[in-house]
Design a protein around this nucleic acid. Structure first.
Length: 346
DNA sequence: AATGGCTCCAACCGCATCTCA
DNA sequence: TTGAGATGCGGTTGGAGCCAT
């Protein structure tokens, strides 16, 4: 079924429902606009994926922190396979893990690079309904709010066989056999997949270790493929990085209109976390609203009229100025052999 | 062309858990 | 230690697109 990549379908057609926040400030609900996404991305750039509540408390967006987090996790995160159906291999992994873990979608999703718990949950739900329909059995009720919290994840949680059987883990995108191969497994996200413009992504997200996160590859020769033939492990990828170069190409263009010389590495949120972040917003938001901006997570130009960023040929020389804890801002994605001890922050 | 069922998926809600003062 | 706020998770809902009739 040819569908537009998720998110674009209803853009602009959101419900626009509004609730009433405590204190009288209206809380916007429903579908996100491009402008809201831009603001949220700004927040992540400055603060990392945290402090969601401050987005509203500081007046940047009339959205709850939960809503902001959900939007980031499910749609704006750069490592998502948007618009890419579950492959046979992914389905197999879901089936196996669901049998082991029960409905622990967040946990299951850690085995599926690029998939969110919501993706897995939706996939499973659709699949269950399809099976129920084929078997002529009524789908298990949708109104099961009464189920006890303790009943969730009903399957016995035993030591995961997958943890000791890494071969079952979905391999890197690069190594999934293409359709027609002996296994018949379809590449889950082929080259035609609107995965993202990796160069642009890495450029725009410079303040964090996106390259070291193992989520992207760099095809310009400056960096090795982060997702190599053996693992998508961030640690592995990071280990491959030539540290005589910055682990990411620093940007000098993401937002047209940003003053020349603006450097995300100098973003107040990094240089002095929290102290002057509001200043950063004040400085950036009018620019993002007034000028075309680059939102590199999307293939198409952003509705605001942005253009894709071009990477600078030469890496800036102020990488060493970054505080070391900048790179702690993102949790590492799970290694391929076993799930992470803690759920990923992505 | 109209229509109804199905699929997909974004985003909400409520509760659980975590963090920090 | 504890309570409030923040964050995470799982279930659910609703709407748009696709497709068969």
């Amino acid at each position: 079924m040819a569908r537009a990549p998720g998110g674009a379908r209803r853009r602009g057609g959101g419900s626009g429902r509004r609730g009433q926040a405590d204190g009288g400030q209206a809380v916007r609900k429903g579908h996100w606009t491009a402008e809201e996404d831009a603001v949220l991305l700004r927040h992540v750039l400055v603060h990392g994926p945290r402090d969601w509540s401050s987005i509203r408390s500081k007046g940047f967006l009339p959205r709850t922190g939960k809503s902001c987090r959900l939007r980031w996790v499910n749609k704006l995160r750069p490592d998502l396979k948007t618009g890419c159906k579950f492959s046979a291999e992914e389905e197999r992994v879901v089936l196996e893990l669901q049998a082991q873990f029960g409905n622990k979608w967040a946990r299951i999703s850690t085995y599926l690079p690029g998939r969110t718990d919501n993706d897995v949950k939706n996939f499973w739900s659709t699949r269950q309904k399809r099976i129920a329909r084929l078997l002529g059995t009524p789908p298990r009720g949708r109104s099961s709010r009464s189920r006890s919290r303790s009943a969730k994840g009903k399957a016995p949680v035993v030591a995961s066989s997958l943890e000791s059987r890494p071969a079952t883990v979905v391999p890197c995108l690069d190594e999934v056999p293409l359709e027609g191969s002996s296994s018949g497994v379809v590449h889950p996200c082929s080259a035609a997949t609107p995965f993202m413009e990796t160069r642009s992504v890495s450029a725009a997200l410079a303040p964090y270790d996106w390259a070291g996160s193992g989520l992207f590859s760099f095809d310009d020769g400056a960096l090795p493929l982060a997702c190599n033939s053996h693992a998508c492990s961030s640690s592995n990828a990071a280990a491959l990085l030539p540290f005589d170069q910055p682990p990411y190409p620093l940007l000098d263009v993401q937002v047209q209109g940003v003053p020349a010389g603006w450097n995300w590495n100098m973003a107040p949120g990094f240089a002095n976390a929290g102290a002057t972040d509001h200043l950063a917003y004040q400085e950036l938001l009018p620019l993002t609203q007034a000028a075309p901006m680059v939102l590199p997570f999307f293939d198409a130009e952003y509705p605001l009229g942005g253009v894709k960023a071009e990477l600078p040929d030469a890496a800036p020389d102020n990488f060493d100025d970054l505080p070391p804890d900048v790179f702690d801002s993102f949790d590492q994605p799970p290694p391929p052999v076993s799930p992470p001890a803690t759920s990923s922050g992505f």
